[in-house]
Design a binder for these strands. Structure first.
Length: 161
DNA sequence: GCCAACGTTGGC
DNA sequence: GCCAACGTTGGC
């Protein structure tokens, strides 16, 4: 069982959109970075836990959790000419891009803004907090995951640590 | 296979 | 909207 963090731009797809989706489940399409693709295709397994992060938000924050309900399969948006994620190089019989399906677990009572996470010693090494980090699908240690979930479910941001 | 130019991400 | 950091592309 592994833990991950998925970024999404607030205005494109939010955790509230996920909550409204049928069975609170969505395919995580549009990832167009090879390192992130490799995680989606090879490493992310059924039942893995996912932190959902809103980027380009006020403030940008980890806002909840989801669980992987389908492992990597071809990202069909790459084949769709009308999609903003269309990629002519990705072929049906040799897809370049992959996606997984995730189901909402919970929306945090207390979203965890980037700025606050930077102050938490247990998260010192977290990929999200590295300068210049842009990876939109990234591994998270179980300790980091648990730390953030505990804070997210607490009534106020910092008291429980 | 180097690297400059370009495009994108994402915090601020 | 700015721009730093990063990834990708393509000429050579």
């Amino acid at each position: 069982m592994s833990c991950w963090l998925f970024k999404t731009e607030l205005e494109k797809f939010s955790i509230q959109d996920l909550a409204k989706a049928p069975r609170k489940t969505t395919y995580w399409d549009g990832v167009r970075n090879y390192q992130a693709r490799n995680f989606l295709r090879d490493k992310i397994k059924l039942g893995d836990q996912v932190l959902i992060y809103h980027s380009n938000a006020e403030p940008s924050a980890v806002v909840g959790t989801a669980v992987v309900v389908r492992e990597g399969y071809p990202d069909t948006s790459a084949f769709d000419k009308s999609s903003r994620y269309y990629d002519e190089k990705s072929k049906q019989d040799a897809p370049t891009w992959f996606m997984v399906d995730v189901q909402l677990v919970e929306i945090f009572k207390t979203p965890q803004p980037l700025e606050a996470l930077r102050d938490i010693p247990a998260l010192k090494k977290m990929e999200l907090l590295r300068k210049g980090s842009r990876l939109s699908v990234q591994p998270v240690s179980s300790q980091e995951y648990q730390t953030i979930v505990r804070l997210g479910n607490a009534k106020s941001g910092k008291s429980s640590i």
